[in-house]
Design a protein around this nucleic acid. Structure first.
Length: 407
RNA sequence: GGGUAGAUGCCCGAGUGGUUAAAGGGGGCAGACUGUAAAUCUGCUAGCAUUGCUUACGUUGGUUCGAAUCCAUCUCUACCCA
């Protein structure tokens, strides 16, 4: 069991009540606010646990919501404990799963964990974050200890869980090791001596198991704090790669900025709350608020220079509609063949600059005949006309897609 | 094991022998308007080709001048009975 790190000269700038108000904002559920307030009143830095499963290599803003909350605790002077589930990842969290998750190899897990922490430290202060790997204790456990741990929970408790229940009802298999997952996550909390555990709404059950085990061990029970799922760009469905409505933390600055500008006003309020932990100024013009949101988020992932630059470029391009001075993907004329029609050039530009395949029919019907395709502002409405772009020319394909030709 | 209903384009869903590349809605895309917001309006939404061709209505085969529509076969799904 790790020692509790020495209490840092705790100079909290906010009263427990003020902290509470800030911390509760944006959460889906806190069990309970009363307990949290009591802990805050202890006057020492609380140990805030966030467990991550390094199962996917790339993360998007939806994954950062819980991290942001952890960061908020950290900024208030509490101890962030980032738990890397290197051991549990090899089992796979059954949360929200309708089937057994394929196990990951240890190497895959470590690679994913590294990219994850890189991203996490864009939100968290690395020097003040404690990182722990649960393999450190689970790999050492003897079978005897495992049995002892398992004797603390009942099958009935585990089966209360909705995911398991549904799988039983549906006649789907549940492998016994999957039942271990919540127990292990719970044990992590004991090892960490967590005062608070943060997770997504799907983590509620697992976090509660942590409370049970802490009680068994005679520890104070952790406060449960679950965060809502972040809606994606459509404002309706949760942000997910498979829905194509996500903003990747590795998206290029301009792309990130642009995607953020395209969200609805309602969604903007959510993003303010869940991504920045702020409330937007209701008196400001929505567009200005959105620009400032986009700038802050872009700064966070690409450095303080990136936000203003992306903003300036966005304004040049979309507010002033000045494509000529905007930063655009470039295509070298040297890579072009000799013969190009408006049609084939559009297809080529879409493919090479944006990786988008458009059928000729679609290009003809939607992009060319509508006047969307323009060379230096001049509409190219004849798909069969031949064109020969020169360096410096700007080809606009649609509102959001344009390229510049260079030598 | 028995019975019933069903399987249509990205999704939902109409269509029961010919004018059906397949109604309608959703979603998506493009344009107009705008704040790359919302709302609204217009158009597109199988592929290739300058009014034609090819591929498509779970599978395979058959009937027919002609089938998503009829017959057989197989696969799958839902519900009911044992």
């Amino acid at each position: 069991m790790p020692d509790i790190p020495g209490i840092l000269a705790g100079s909290f700038t906010m009263s427990p009540e003020q902290q509470l108000a800030q911390l509760v904002a944006g959460t889906a559920k806190v069990l309970s606010e009363k307990e949290l307030l009591e802990k805050l009143k202890l006057g020492r830095p609380l140990r805030i646990k966030l467990g991550v499963d390094p199962t996917a290599p790339d993360i998007h803003l939806g994954h950062t919501v819980a991290l942001e909350k952890l960061g908020q605790f950290q900024r208030l002077g509490h101890q962030a404990v980032l738990l890397i589930g290197d051991f549990t990842a090899t089992i796979g969290d059954p949360s929200g799963r309708s089937a057994t998750r394929p196990p990951l190899s240890r190497d895959e897990v470590l690679v994913n964990a590294a990219t994850y922490t890189d991203q996490a430290f864009k939100i968290l202060d690395k020097s003040k974050t404690e990182i722990v790997y649960n393999g450190d204790w689970f790999r050492k456990m003897s079978y005897e200890e495992i049995l002892r741990l398992n004797s603390r929970v009942t099958l009935q408790q585990m089966l209360q869980r909705e995911d398991f229940r549904m799988r039983i009802d549906a006649g789907k298999e549940i492998r016994l090791h999957e039942l271990q997952y919540p127990v292990m996550q719970g044990w992590d909390s004991v090892e960490i001596r967590a005062d608070v555990e943060i997770g997504g709404t799907d983590q509620l059950f697992n976090i509660l198991v942590g409370r049970d085990l802490q009680k068994e061990e005679g520890q104070p029970q952790q406060v449960v704090m679950v965060m809502p799922l972040l809606e994606g760009l459509d404002g309706v469905r949760k942000m997910s790669k498979s829905y194509g409505n996500y903003i990747g933390v590795n998206d290029a600055p301009q792309e990130m900025f642009g995607k953020l500008m395209s969200i609805s006003d309602e969604l903007m309020d959510r993003y303010y709350l869940l991504l920045l932990g702020e409330t937007r100024d209701a008196n400001a013009h929505p567009m200005d608020s959105k620009k400032s949101l986009a700038e802050k988020v872009t700064n966070r992932y690409h450095g303080a220079e990136a936000g203003p630059a992306a903003r300036a470029d966005w304004e040049t391009r979309f507010s002033k509609k000045d494509l000529a001075s905007a930063e655009l993907p470039e295509i070298s004329v040297a890579t072009l063949g000799d013969e190009y029609t408006v049609l084939s050039l559009s297809a080529f530009a879409f493919r090479s600059a944006f990786g988008i395949e458009k059928s000729n029919g679609e290009l003809r019907k939607q992009f060319i005949s509508t006047g969307s395709v323009q060379l230096n502002g001049e509409k190219l409405t004849d798909p069969t006309a031949s064109v020969r772009p020169s360096p410096g020319d700007v080809l606009k394909l649609s509102k959001k897609h344009a390229v510049r030709f260079v030598a």
